[in-house]
């Protein structure tokens, strides 16, 4: 980790569903759990509402990373729409790689309304991961990896 990445504070846009993950965030708040101030949440009714362009728009607007959060598989308030979010997440991982954005800048987090502590801990973890990646910089991400844009590709430090 360079000096730069140690002091770098990433800005992260987070999308939550109304029923589970936003309530997990509420619960973390009500329980006064402390976590990193880097994430700014947008509440959707369902993670299935997440249009992939929202994620691209967030990166285009300067976000260093994007968090997608919804109910656990099987617990969706709208039966199964979080599975649609899951598919879009995998698709986005590939597309981001091809666009020159490290796939590690996109995170999917399932959180139930009772999992405030998990929500807070995962955000802290994600902030550290993004801090290690440094500010969003298309040119830094090697073309060879971009071309494949594979899910889970190791990102060079």
């Amino acid at each position: 980790m360079t000096e730069d990445t140690k002091t770098f504070e990433p800005t992260i846009i987070g999308f939550t569903c109304n029923w589970c993950s936003y309530r997990a965030a509420d619960m973390a708040g009500t329980a006064r759990m402390k976590y990193a101030p880097n994430v700014r949440l947008i509440r959707l009714m369902c993670s299935g509402r997440l249009d992939p362009t929202f994620v691209l728009k967030a990166f285009a607007s300067g976000a260093d990373a994007v968090l997608i959060s919804g109910c656990h598989p099987g617990d969706c308030h709208y039966i199964e729409q979080n599975y649609k979010a899951l598919r879009r997440y995998h698709l986005l991982k590939r597309v981001l790689g091809q666009l020159g954005v490290e796939p590690g800048r996109l995170k999917l987090l399932w959180a139930s309304a009772a999992e405030g502590a998990i929500f807070a801990a995962e955000i802290n973890k994600f902030v550290e991961e993004v801090r290690a990646l440094g500010p969003l910089n298309y040119n830094k991400y090697p073309l060879a990896v971009q071309a494949h844009g594979m899910v889970g590709t190791e990102v060079p430090a």
Binding site: I42, C46, G48, D51, T53, K57, A63, Y78, Q81, K84
Partner: peptide, 28 residues
């Protein structure tokens, strides 16, 4: 839930209360 709004390839579906314009502007 808005899943169809996100899925429509033609952008023909709008979701009241959580429209694309609302969310894209919020991101900005």
């Amino acid at each position: 839930c808005g899943t169809c709004v996100a899925a429509c390839p033609a952008g023909a579906i709008s979701g009241t209360g959580f429209s694309n314009q609302q969310i894209l502007s919020q991101i900005e």
